[in-house]
Amino acid sequence: MSSKQAIDLKKTAIDWLGIAPFLLFAVMFLIAPTLYLVTGAFVNPAGEFTFDNVAGLFTDKILASYWISIKISLASSIGGAFIGFFLAWAVVLGGLPSWIRSSLLTFSGVASNFAGVPLAFAFLATLGRTGLVTMLLRDWFGINLYASGFNLLSFIGLTLTYMYFQIPLMVLIITPALDGLKKEWREAAEILGATNTQYWTKVAMPILFPSILGTTLLLFANAFGAIATAYSLTGSTFNIVPIQLYAQIRGDVLHNPNLGYALALGMIVITGISNLIYIWLRMRAERWQK
């Protein structure tokens, strides 16, 4: 080996040594635990390869919990994306005073991080059986929410609660995309004869669509993995997947540790796919908005 090659080799070694701590951290605390669960999902307690665990997910109880999780995540992400989009549209293009925009963005920064246990408390105090809104509706308008079938500890209640952090997250992510709509695009479309509706359907919406869809997927994954809010709102009575997994970790309620791994694998697959599509769509959108 020539001395030049030796020096090159040494330089390469030093280069890699520089990020060795990070790689070690990633392997120990991200990659290995995930791989452990993923491989665990495909072996039986005796250590032999099997699809039984994954097949075991397709029982009524587990499928039902995936289904309710997906329903809540879908409803809160689509609802959050829809409302968030209109809020962002209002402050960016609605011609409102600029202080509204900055307050909304600041508030969104706070509210999107205001999740978990305290959020559950807030909604209990608002829409719980003795919550302020529940009581006001009863005393002022004679509407008895709970008698009409509403329950905070239900699909609709949880969706409303989740939307409290979903809407601000949407606002934060979609506002830059709306800012990226150039004034000239609208003017170019107009001068070429397009009406306002034609501009939105043929130009603005197609441009925004990857961002909107991508962010909705991100919100979906965000809701799908969340547990603290639901857990402290409903205890372990409400069978969304993360709560099921929580119970499994605490006490092996499925009576099969490997089935627990499969449960986790299912979560990774669902959040993983939606996140990957999000990242892909976002790269597409950014390419356009250069």
């Binding site: 150039k182 000239e184 695009w185 003017e187 170019a188 479309a189 107009e190 001068i191 070429l192 004869g193 397009a194 009406t195 130009v203 197609p206 441009i207 356009w288 908005q289």
Partner: peptide, 18 residues
């Protein structure tokens, strides 16, 4: 503007990126 039948070219190209 959309009733005037005028052509316009902008400084920043303004091509529709999609």
């Amino acid at each position: 503007p959309n009733q005037r039948n005028i052509g316009m070219v902008f400084q920043a190209y303004a091509l529709f990126p999609n």
